[in-house]
Design a protein around this nucleic acid. Sequence first.
RNA 1: GUGGCCGUAGCUCAGUCGGUUAGAGCGCCAGGUUGUGGCCCUGGAGGUCGGGGGUUCAAAUCCCCUCGGCCACCCCA
Length: 433
Amino acid sequence: MNPEYRSITGTFDILPDTSTTDGASDAPSSTWRYIEDVIHKVMQRFNAEEIRTPILEPTPLIARGVGAYTDIVSKEMFAFERGDTHYVLRPEITAPVVRAYLQHHLDQRGGVQKLYYIGPCFRAERPQKGRYRQFHQFGAEIMGTDDPRADVECIALMMAIYEEIGLSGLRLRLNSVGNPASRARFVEALQNYLEPYRHELSETSLQRLEKNPLRILDTKAQHEQEILQDAPVLLDFLDEESEKHYAEVKTLLQDLEIAFVEDPTLVRGLDYYTHTAFELESADIGAQSALGGGGRYDLLAQELGSKQAVPSIGFASGIERLLLAMEAQGIEAPAAPAVDVFLAALGDEAQRWVFRWAQQLRAEGLSVGLDLRGRSLKSQMKEANRQRAEYTLIIGGNELEAGGAQVKHMESGEQEEVAFDNLVAYLQRRIEA
RNA sequence: GUGGCCGUAGCUCAGUCGGUUAGAGCGCCAGGUUGUGGCCCUGGAGGUCGGGGGUUCAAAUCCCCUCGGCCACCCCA
């Protein structure tokens, strides 16, 4: 079609089936629904409550809540201005949830707030496998406690969803970035260590050295990796409190028999991230191997203006990557439901009869298909077949006269006459089973 | 933002030493069955050969530009 009207690069349509692939999700809408159903179900099991926030947020919220020196904020935001308001299409959902928590004083509901979300996010990156400009995240935030059990419950919740879907062989990486005091000491040590290597560092790493030193740790540059071989290790700088929190998290994970590997290079770069950081990886979904990740952010609420600390932990996962992992492991979602009964009509009078009966049967809760083009009976039968109708009613002049419909069971091909008066009961009885 | 690969029907693809009206299978529509789907047979619709420009008597085929897709880098979901 005219390129001017095509869907935007990096976005895709989710269609009823997968008969076309250009600019469409590889998975049909029924598969998306299935995944969403699983998410809702598992979240419910963990007594998390759904929250829905706007897709449009004020740019300063994201800049502050995600971090000005992150790639997301510095180069990947879809942001624009109207009048004196700066808008951004949300690149993630944690900051908006914290915003909503503070704006609506959710702490006043009492207790820990366990909130979850599913929805689209936007980042202006070059698309590739598992990466899109509009993509879909689900996640949960457990807010109002710094108890390590919250960390583990958050991880357990995330894992339970993948478990329920049936994925296996995933790798959970775990680390602690400590509290601000211990991290500050580590950052100083890291900066001191790297000082002599300054001239060997890339431009971005040099910038990070000043603004956001932790992120140097996850550099991919071979040479910088080598330099970092002998660098100070974050875990060695944890103070007693941080050490204790981390140890507790590991113990609790073991109690729940959730396997993990410790990875000291796994970091969350910004100051308001504390303690636990984790990421869930799959080896078979391409270069973008992270299915989901998260961590503790005890200081974010204050960053956004809260007088009180709201110690919290959350995770976020990508639905597109979940789909990739399902495909790689041959996991199929249930097929979209078929119609219960298709009404085939022959002749004008029968058409009117069928049109009314479709409405009635639907009111009885049956899903009903019918012809809207006045086509031949044969065509209508083909249509019924395509819609995978369980039963097809055939109504023509003979049936109207006899006061009963021909009811055909499509799979067996068996057909019998059923009086109009008994139709609803007949169909309901058979279709329930 | 950078790099590599790829764009022929709705889908999967054939057709490229340049040469008459661009093909197949599947799907779609219709007929064979004047009231019956799935199998089979027959016919039909559907293509700016991604787009623009150039070379040529002649371009799906060669050249340039451009758009789109895929994959990778950076980084993340």
